[in-house]
Structures are given as structure tokens and as C-alpha cells.
Design a protein around this nucleic acid. Structure first.
Ligand SMILES: [Zn+2]
Ligand SMILES: [Zn+2]
Ligand SMILES: [Zn+2]
Ligand SMILES: [Zn+2]
Lengths: 131, 131
DNA sequence: CGTCTTATTGATAATGATTGTCAACATCAG
DNA sequence: CTGATGTTGACAATCATTATCAATAAGACG
């Protein structure tokens, strides 16, 4: 049976406070800086559970790090992510969903899943890099 | 100046011989099994260079491993990949290209790039898992 | 409230892919 | 051929993530 611990709550609200995708390491550092003594392994476990339960989205950075972000549960969506500051916008991709399904079926593939992410420079980072 | 070595050639043709995405480790093992004595670090370097030069596609497995596959240079495309055996089909995604560009522009993001991959079970693996 | 079962924690070790190091080596222009 | 230097490969180092496991604490039950 699953128990409620302040650790899991702490991770959840620390994640809610982020507006960008963050790694387990970063979130752990943030928690520690805020005076929350919590184990690194616990943060990993909490994030993993959150993602599995649909309470968080996860993706891999270009370097292979696992990044997490709070999201509205039950809503399938994708992300537009600033590759400089990490700020993230949730986006709908209805056409892409259907395209992915049909392209898989066309080739006889079953149980299709898809990875769809768009990376770019957000307006602010664009302005900075142009300066 | 860049020099030609048999090692780089060996990696390139070993990659050409694969019909699925493979990791550097796997390719190194294959080469060794074929009697080609080559260093692991060299395989990593060769694959990295190949991908940078556009001679190979790369993606990250769900476990975060970097996987490579030979591809036709200059051709932007995406992949439909069997999550069981790794067999891969190159797919066009014209609509998705445009969607990615416009969704980025809509939100003021510049220099958009995108990660689009479809995973599923290939016909053969579907048959096996159904048995 | 006290007790008991057991899920959870967290310090630490272990894992495993990838990268850095650097002396020995091989390529190729001259 | 020969020298300058790009490349190799064995090995160590990194670094994110996972496994261990004794100690802890949640919460069901009486
Ligand atoms: Zn930004
Ligand atoms: Zn989708
Ligand atoms: Zn398959
Ligand atoms: Zn594309």
C-alpha cells in the first residue's frame, strides 16, 4: 500500500514551482537550498513515481539527462522548449497524433507511441542572443 | 586536417550492415566478433563524427543510450522504430516539419528544431508477442 | 493512544555509458 | 623518405542513475 510522506509532497511542490524542465539533481539542490533535507535517491524515486502516475512529464535532454516538469494530469500534450533557459510551453498536436498512428499502421507496426518535442529559443533568449 | 583510417571505414561499413539502430557498445562487440580489433573509444569517436557529418542518424533509447544508424545524407527524415528488435523504417513527415515550424513561430520561438520518433512493435515482433 | 506490519527513506556502494588522458602510432604533404 | 601532427586504444575518470539495506515512520487495528 502506498503511503503519504512529506518527502513526496516536497518534491511535488518543488516541481510545481518550476516553470522549466529540471533534472532530479537540480530539484534536489533546490530543495536543499530551501532548507529541505531530503535524500537524492528519494527525489529520483518521487519523480519517477510522479511521471509514472501521470503527474509529471519527462523527457531527455540532448545530453541524455532525464528532465521533469509538472503537468496537468490526463492531458496528452507535447512541449515547446527553450534550449537555452528551459522555459516550456505545452502544445497540442492533434494532427501529429493521428499522423503517428497512421504511419505506424501503414507499416504494420502496432502499439505505437511517439516522442515529439520542439526546441528553440524563447523570445527572451532570442533577444539576448541578438544583442 | 582529417585523415582516413581503416578504423573509421570499419565503423562506417559495420553501421551500413545494420538494419536497426545500434549502440556504440553493440557495434564495437560486432566488430570484435568479426575479428576486427578496434578500441571502444574509437568506435564512440567515429560514430560521433559520422553523426556530426550527417552520415548517420542518432537518437536516444528510452533508457538514455545513444543509438546510431546509417542514413542517406542530406535527407531530413524521421524514424519508425520497433521497440523490441530495433528494426527501423525511414519515414517522411512533411506535415510535421511545417507544424513544428509554425508552432514555434506562433509562440515567438526562433531557430526551431524538433525531435520526432515513432516507436512500436514491428509486424514480426507483434506476431511473436501475440503467440 | 499503543502496537505492529511494512512501505519508505537515505547514506552509500555499485552500475554502466560516455568522455578524458596521453604515450605510441600511422597518415600524408612536401 | 621524413617530419608534423591527427588518430588510436588501454585505462582512468566522470557522472547520472540504480541497488542495497538497516533505520525510520505511516497508518491500520484494537
Ligand atoms: Zn529561453
Ligand atoms: Zn502526442
Ligand atoms: Zn521488431
Ligand atoms: Zn523533421
Amino acid at each position: 500500500m502506498k503511503r503519504n510522506t512529506w518527502q513526496r509532497e516536497a518534491v511535488k511542490s518543488a516541481l510545481d514551482a518550476q516553470e522549466a524542465f529540471v533534472s532530479a539533481q537540480q530539484l534536489h539542490a533546490t530543495l536543499r537550498d530551501d532548507g529541505t533535507a531530503i535524500g537524492l535517491a528519494t527525489v529520483y524515486r518521487a519523480l519517477s513515481d510522479l511521471a509514472a502516475a501521470g503527474g509529471a512529464d519527462s523527457l531527455q535532454s540532448a545530453e541524455g539527462e532525464a528532465l521533469y516538469r509538472a503537468c496537468t494530469p490526463g492531458q496528452h500534450h507535447h512541449h515547446l522548449i527553450c534550449r537555452n533557459c528551459g522555459v516550456t510551453v505545452e502544445i497540442e498536436a492533434t494532427h501529429v497524433e493521428q499522423w503517428a498512428k497512421s504511419i505506424a499502421t501503414e507499416h504494420g507496426f502496432t502499439q505505437p507511441e511517439h516522442v515529439v518535442d520542439v526546441f528553440g529559443l524563447c523570445p527572451e533568449c532570442t533577444a539576448l542572443s541578438a544583442g
